[in-house]
């Protein structure tokens, strides 16, 4: 436990120092993407890993966060920070609308239902003129400021904002693990009927877990919109993104606090590198590598890469 805390402090210290040592845009950008996906992975892990409700629709929350922010900023000049909040509200609403009927479905049907929901959202935004339809939305270029959530001369502010979001996600998950909610979610994953016999309203707790997952993902969507300053449906709501989140957790360790962190540190550099070296022709190569990785992992270390760190030490 003590050792874990020291490791975490060293790790976070390294993250704080990293952009001061590496001042080129590319390493900074890579780390920003790692932290973004790690945070989203933690969000996915809460519903998919701990609670065992595999969601292939989490990209929808990312999209809702991004679009809520963009629409409010472009049309009403409202600060993205408020957009972030509104995005969270809409994402939770979506989680509840989807979760209410779908959590009644047993087994894999929830996963299938979330694919449908994700695709519906993608379709709606691709055809919704007000939201820019397939072309998407360009954010207005505003003067650099924290309030405007725009920084043009350096990626550094973005780096530290996502670092805060990432650390907050770890914090949320840390508390989740230690709370009644976290215990109940794990019970629901292992045996829903057994859980009900102990007075657990499984529907309600799945819903709460899904909402937390939605909030974290939505905040990441807002960040992304402000970071890239241009969003369109396939960059924010693609099914592939939901699958990537699942893969990140699977690689790192399902239902483990640092699982998605490790997963993102392996996954994102590979994605960024294939993008850089293979360009658009390389699309899909990263996924081929992951498929291989998952197969190897499934045989060698089915609990995910996290198991390497805990091996030998008591659980």
């Amino acid at each position: 436990m003590k050792k874990g805390l020291i490791a975490l402090i060293i790790f976070l210290g390294a993250l704080v120092a990293f952009p001061l040592i590496f001042q080129d845009p590319f390493p900074r950008h890579t780390l920003i993407m790692i932290m973004l996906y790690a945070a989203m992975g933690i969000g996915w892990n809460i519903i998919g890993g701990y609670t065992g409700q595999v969601s292939f629709g989490n990209a929808a929350f990312f999209g809702v966060g991004a679009y809520a922010t963009a629409i409010m900023l472009v049309n009403f000049g409202i600060t993205p920070w408020l957009g972030m909040l509104v995005g969270c509200v809409f994402s939770v609403a979506l989680a509840i609308i989807v979760g209410y009927p779908c959590f009644r479905l047993q087994g894999h049907y929830f996963a299938i239902a979330t694919i449908a929901v994700g695709e519906i959202m993608l379709l709606v935004f691709t055809n919704w003129e007000y939201a820019g339809a397939a072309v998407g939305i360009y954010m207005p270029i505003l003067p650099e400021s924290f309030m405007n959530f725009e920084f043009h001369t350096s990626k550094l502010p973005y780096y530290y904002i996502i670092l805060v979001i990432f650390v907050a996600a770890i914090g949320v998950c840390w508390f989740f693990e230690r709370s009644r909610l976290g215990y109940y979610c794990r019970a629901i994953k292992e045996d829903p009927d057994g859980a009900r016999s102990l007075g657990i309203n499984i529907q309600r707790y799945k819903m709460i877990a899904f909402s937390i997952s939605a909030i974290i993902t939505s905040i990441c969507g807002t960040f992304y919109a402000q970071y890239v300053l241009y969003i369109h449906p396939t960059s924010t709501m693609d099914l592939m993104m939901s699958i990537q989140l699942c893969i990140i957790c699977l690689i790192g360790g399902l239902g483990k606090l640092y699982g998605p962190v490790i997963g993102a540190f392996v996954f994102i550099p590979l994605t960024e590198l294939t993008r850089v070296y293979l360009g658009s022709e390389g699309q899909g190569v990263d996924l081929m590598i992951y498929s291989m990785l998952i197969i190897i992992l499934a045989i060698w270390r089915p609990q995910g890469l996290w198991a390497i760190f805990t091996k030998g030490t008591a659980k």
Partner: peptide, 25 residues
């Protein structure tokens, strides 16, 4: 009522085939 409500009211139960959470301590 629902199974969870029954437990909350004060009736506990076990199952013929054990349903403990096997992966937990």
């Amino acid at each position: 009522k629902t199974p969870e409500a029954i437990c909350q009211m004060g009736i506990g139960r076990t199952f013929q085939l054990v349903r403990i959470f096997k992966e937990m301590t």
